[in-house]
Amino acid sequence: MKTALITGASRGLGAALAEALAPTHHIIAVGRTTGALEDLDDRIKALGGEATLAPMDITVDAAMQQLCRSIFDRWGSLDLWVHAAIHAAPLTPASHVNPSDFSKSTDVNLTATSRLISYVAPLLGAVGKAVFLDDPRGGTAFFGSYGATKAAQIALARSWQAETVKTGPQVQILNPNPMSSATRARFFPGEDRSTLADPRDEATRLLPDILA
């Protein structure tokens, strides 16, 4: 069976994509919340799939090195990486950005992504695929920490995409629709959530592109 590494698999779109991919891939689910990963494992098993749970913080470099080494030792390679991990800092004017929030946003959204690309690329080789999820809020009012670091993450992914056109792995950047996720609820607490997509429905919509 093919393998799929999902970083940010605890909840939201990451968890939904893990479930959607479970019929065709062994899921390696990375997230910080052990209970949420165990719940995901139960749902994957109910679908007849299998998962390996990795309750880890992607900002811990040694943990990510060990994770990728373990993937190599067990499977030798990786077919798919979906990077759904994100830090959503509180909304604030740019002139009032909290330094610790900005630092955490940079650590999770940019620095950890850069390190993971370097560690995961050899596992994907020439034929694997990496998937990133865009959220074009760079330059939007009050989204300074999140918008700037998410935009930088996608810029990094686009550079990797351009560099690997002829050599692989394939790098794909997808654009999810607004979803009724916990992250969005923190940004827009009073929003009418009935107008938003369910993460599972969005995973179903994106799945054909991921598997193409």
Score class of each variant (00 low, 15 high):
R186N: 15
V165P: 03
G12N: 08
Q66S: 15
A155G: 07
P122I: 03
E191F: 15
Q153P: 02
V131M: 01
T59H: 00
W160D: 03
T3I: 01
T3M: 00
P99S: 11
D57Y: 08
G12W: 02
L124D: 01
A63I: 08
S118D: 13
D192N: 15
L124R: 07
L17D: 02
W160E: 06
R69Y: 10
L133F: 03
D134R: 02
G35W: 08
A15E: 05
A20N: 06
S159R: 05
L21H: 02
R205P: 08
T149C: 07
T33A: 15
G49T: 08
D198W: 12
R43T: 07
H83S: 13
M64Y: 03
M179D: 01
T24C: 06
T167Q: 11
F132H: 06
H25G: 06
A15F: 03
A185P: 07
L5S: 00
A162E: 12
F188I: 12
D42I: 12
T149I: 04
P176G: 07
Y146S: 00
Q161H: 07
I27C: 04
A46R: 14
S114D: 08
G49F: 09
A4W: 02
P208I: 09
D198C: 11
L133M: 06
S194Q: 15
Y146R: 00
S145I: 04
L124V: 04
S194G: 15
L156Q: 09
L207Y: 06
D79M: 09
D39Q: 15
D198K: 13
P55G: 05
M56A: 13
A16E: 06
